[in-house]
Design a binder for these strands. Structure first.
Lengths: 254, 254
DNA sequence: ACGCATTTGTTCGTATGTATT
DNA sequence: TAATACATACGAACAAATGCG
């Protein structure tokens, strides 16, 4: 068995990865493919390392390294003794994976959600550009309000590609218990795996002020999020306005 | 050679790690110790994997895993063919490791810095609490202004433990080219390795407004940072006020 | 300009430990 | 208790990048 450390020949199962990348990177790309193609769904276990090693004809260690990176990127979750699972926005234990807002004091109380609006319309230019839509293509706009202890804290405007979210209605959103991204996973097969945020301080306009129960002109945190799914494809543009009197956005640097 | 996977006996070089942790975790703790004790300084190379393996009497792979984690945490930097180096706030090439502010358009132009104040005084209660100081202990307060394209953007109030920063003066700060954290490393042996930030939107008070050249009451981003060194010891409390009209705070979620 | 030694990076194989069911 | 799956640890070999003579 001499050809251990050579790149695999682009023969049978040639993947999307450039042929001259390390084996484990190629395996990683193949795994992402299977995730993308819903071979394994969020929350499910993927095959064991040994099974995958057999399937791809590589050693367990190589599969391990591929999985290690996917786990580090948050696509997979390892659980000793149980298996390796596809990451999901469900459970995710403590809280919403992407929500970085925390109360200044006390534990993160559960938030109440109210859907203010949910409509289909043509994507404005800026939204179309961000979501890689053709100009004039359909988009869904969701507007919602998050409250903690009865006080409004977050006003979200959420833009989604219309083609991916056929049948998304205010009723469906309101009826859903649990994170919205969980609904997107289970109902529309869209999985948010990564996002970039741009944060600014802005002054509340009159309409916003009323919704968030603050004075017009009050400082608000503006959080613009572009969420991506597999292959870095953008699938959500979100603009949140956070009232940060009793809450803050937390971040860790390293 | 039967005793491969057993925890090392707490004999010769017993470390800080609990005796029942994986070998590579123990090695990791020993490496952190050496970093903490300045056996290797920022920017320097640590011994090669084989040397370390010999020193600790473990396999290269075990050292590798320890180094892998330290690299993932940002304490070390690996460079193929050259060695593994102690992370530093110097070079760090592109930009300041911890500064997340980016211009809305264009590349990150270099910022001009102006030190407004640098004085020693007793730490206020809140600062003392955050920095683990006894109440009334000495602290250094630095106030500075960052500008981009001639326009002020960031006003920083920086609190440091007086005991660690003896001899820090406005002159020393002003004379320094390069990141402030680089000065802290080289001059005071204090290395910031991790930080937590709490972000809010606030209204500019009169004094701040003048310094940042905005209207009083204008919305500003308030960024409170607690920086830590080895062993999670807090060594800096910083409060920055960012003018986010032409800039934003960027963040990545995953 | 070439080649060699060094150092990290990749890959395999094997055995054993530990958590879960 | 046994089987399964991930976690740890060892050893060995070759690849790729770097720096030096």
């Amino acid at each position: 068995m001499p050809s251990a450390a050579h790149p695999v020949e682009p023969s049978a199962d040639a993947g999307a990865a450039p042929a001259f990348s390390p084996l484990y990177q190629q395996i990683k790309a193949l795994l992402v493919r299977s995730l993308q193609g819903s071979e394994w769904r969020p929350g499910e276990a993927i095959p064991s390392e040994l099974e995958l090693a057999a399937r791809f004809k590589v050693s367990q260690g190589t599969v391990r390294k591929a999985i290690d990176e996917l786990a580090a990127e948050g696509l997979l979750v390892r659980r000793q003794g149980k298996g390796t699972f596809v990451a999901t926005h469900a459970e995710q234990t403590v809280q919403y994976r992407f929500l970085r807002l925390a109360p200044d004091e006390g534990a993160t109380a559960p938030v109440e959600r109210r859907v203010l609006d949910c409509r289909r319309l043509r994507a404005p230019a800026e939204v179309a550009r961000a979501l890689d839509l053709k100009s004039g293509e359909a988009a869904v706009l969701v507007r919602r309000l998050l409250s903690a202890q009865g006080r409004p804290v977050v006003l979200d405007d959420i833009w989604l590609p219309g083609a991916l979210f056929k049948g998304l209605t205010a009723e469906k959103l309101s009826g859903w218990r649990g994170p919205m991204y969980e609904l997107f996973e289970s109902e529309f097969g869209v999985r948010m795996i990564r996002a970039e945020e741009q944060i600014r301080a802005v002054a509340a306009d009159a309409a916003t002020a009323q919704l968030l129960a603050v004075e017009p002109g009050a400082p608000l945190l503006s959080v613009e999020r572009l969420s991506r799914t597999y292959g870095d494809k953008p699938v959500e543009l979100r603009r949140g306005l956070y009232h940060t009197a009793q809450h803050h956005y937390r971040n860790e640097l390293s």
